[in-house]
Design a protein around this nucleic acid. Structure first.
Length: 267
DNA sequence: CGACTCCTGACA
DNA sequence: TGTCAGGAGTCG
């Protein structure tokens, strides 16, 4: 469940389960996760006490008493599940990593596609790659975004997916935010007016805030009518009833309302 | 910049 | 059987 609101919801589960707990054992069940978490590294986690658990963009990091970080990224289909160590019911078929704690609880990385990444990094370094400001944070401003879009020849939609531009926006909320801002996703990023850039920032924050409020669980189609445009090709725009269009940008689906963005151009 | 890759499951 | 999927690192 990958975008900022969903990862935040997952981080809360991780905090509730793991914070303050001592790791008894970490089991890596899929070879894909062994790239970042070899058996040797996984073994070194035994005895670590989990301190703070932070989220940055779509990353989570569990602070360890040795000073290291256990960094997790869900990618497409990762999520946390919680269970008891002694539980004899079968483990989820997609369980990839099991973190067992001394108190008998366990945090399970469940990930159908096994694309999630798990790794341990030294405490000295930044646990995260170069991420831009949080999509719902005060540092994500019109000035910042305008600066980062300067000279960008690609489309605004693709720019929003660049985590060094803004952290936490994924393919769904990128389309949703641009619909809210009435910006054509195909527009070259550097050509947006200052007002349009401000609108994108506002719309992104509103979109993320709304999802956070809903508990960040879009896979279950929580909020009324799911999304405004995402996965609604051929259906009527909730604002103007025009037909939602799907295009492909940088290999990813983009959805938008052609009429809403035309109105914006005429302003 | 785009193309390709890592994996598996769902669906046409 | 083939195509597509909510992500991002790497490569040309």
């Amino acid at each position: 469940m990958p975008e900022l609101p969903e990862v935040e919801a997952a981080a809360r589960i991780a905090r509730r389960t793991a914070q303050g707990q001592v790791v008894k054992r970490v089991r890596v069940l899929h070879r894909a996760q062994r790239k970042g978490l070899s058996d040797r590294v996984a073994g070194s986690l035994s005895g670590e006490r989990v301190g703070s658990i932070i989220r940055r963009g779509k990353y989570q990091a569990l602070g360890l008493s040795s000073g290291r970080w256990l960094v997790v990224h869900f990618r497409m289909t990762g999520d946390w599940a919680v269970r008891r160590v002694g539980d004899t019911t079968p483990l989820d078929a997609h369980a990839r990593v099991v973190i067992e704690f001394a108190n008998g609880s366990a945090l399970v990385l469940v990930d159908a596609r096994a694309l999630a990444t798990v790794g341990v990094v030294a405490g000295a370094g930044d646990p995260f790659p170069r991420l831009g400001p949080e999509a719902n944070g005060k540092d994500f401003t019109q000035a910042w975004l305008h600066n980062r879009l300067t000279g960008r020849r690609g489309a605004i939609k693709v720019a929003l997916l660049d985590q060094t531009v803004v952290a936490g926006v994924g393919n769904i909320y990128a389309s949703e935010a641009l619909w809210r801002a009435r910006i054509d996703p195909r527009v070259v990023a550097s050509t947006l007016t200052r007002a349009q850039v401000a609108g994108v920032v506002r719309a992104t924050k509103a979109t993320i805030a709304r999802a956070l409020k809903g508990g960040g669980r879009y896979s279950q189609g929580t909020y009324e009518g799911r999304f405004a445009v995402y996965d609604r090709e051929g259906e009527p725009c909730r604002r103007c009833r025009a037909t939602i269009v799907r295009i492909v940008q940088a290999g990813r689906s983009t959805y938008y309302c052609p009429r809403c963005v035309t109105k914006e151009k005429r302003r």
